[in-house]
Design a protein around this nucleic acid. Structure first.
Lengths: 174, 174
DNA sequence: GAAGCTTGGTTAAAGTTTGAAACAAACCTA
DNA sequence: TAGGTTTGTTTCAAACTTTAACCAAGCTTC
């Protein structure tokens, strides 16, 4: 099977995409480091927690939601815990698990820094895209994400065949 | 001035975009680490060099082309030099400058691993997008990149007002 | 022609990420 | 219920990134 190289058009798209994602991550990291004292990834972890009913999530679920490895998350949570923005709590139902919980201070940092973050994202992205383009971006991104989900180093079972999700949900819902 | 939060549609697009870029970088890094023994960034450095007439570029130009900081590049080139894939050479015209040059071995690694890399990119992206979507992706990415170019920590002058580019071109072109 | 700025490149130290291995709790099965 | 497997998490070392100096070479200007 001979390689199907990228067409010139695909190459242009690929280069532009790589440039955009690199520059964007850099810009966001710089802004958040500046204003919140943490990189984008850490901010995202806090943000993910803030959306949960009780601002808590099992480590593995949080890693899945943030789409990062568990060991990376462990390091990040350790740091954020040191900063007082997150605290850990053991799960009573499954003694292997532990929760990461957003503290009030963590929530405060989030609320204080969210406007600046949104502004950065707007300035670089949404203020420059037409309504149609926003839709296209979502569609394209979803296709790519779907293609890669579950490919991860630790392939996860799909939602309907996850036994522990039932077991753990009374825990996280309490 | 009150914050203009993201609309639900924008939020969906943003989340999908973040998920896609994270997953994609992970997948590509994994594949290249596997097949070429280096992360995507390092592969990109080799690829950038391979496109030059003499497979050589001044460090600063290479950093600009790869859109990374000079110190990051210094580290990467040191590693790749250790591996024998790149070698350095002093510039005779400007004694401050040095070139990074892709060795034959580096070129060989690139040629050997390019098909697998392209295949990964195709599988995750281009084989799943319509022709229209490829165009949309390029357009959207270009808009974002343009918004951020020059924003970098070391703001660079635009092309038409760069005095040293003239000075360095006889050097890099020889 | 030397003081003073700018540019090209590296270095050092601290911080982050990765990937494999370790560990313990939970599960399964005969 | 003993033994083996899976799951959730952490630990550790090695690799990578960042930030802020640093040095040397080029350019400016007086």
């Amino acid at each position: 099977m001979t390689t199907r190289w990228l067409t010139p058009k695909e190459q242009r798209a690929w280069r532009a995409f790589m440039a955009a994602t690199n520059l964007l991550e850099d810009a966001i990291d710089r802004q958040l480091q500046q204003d919140a004292g943490m990189p984008h990834l850490y901010y995202g972890i806090l943000a993910n927690l803030s959306e949960e009913p009780e601002r808590k999530l099992r480590m593995t679920d949080l890693a899945a939601k943030a789409k990062i490895t568990r060991s990376r998350l462990t390091y990040a949570v350790t740091r954020l815990e040191k900063d007082g923005l997150i605290r850990r709590e053991d799960c009573q139902w499954d003694k292997r698990s532990s929760f990461a919980i957003l503290t009030d201070e963590g929530m405060a940092v989030l609320e204080r820094t969210a406007p600046g973050h949104v502004e950065t994202v707007r300035a670089a992205v949404f203020d420059r895209l037409s309504d149609d383009q926003v839709g296209q971006l979502e569609e394209i991104s979803s296709v790519i994400a779907r293609a890669l989900e579950g490919d991860a180093s630790t392939p996860r079972p799909t939602a309907d065949e996850v036994p522990w999700r039932r077991r753990s949900s009374p825990c996280s819902g309490s």
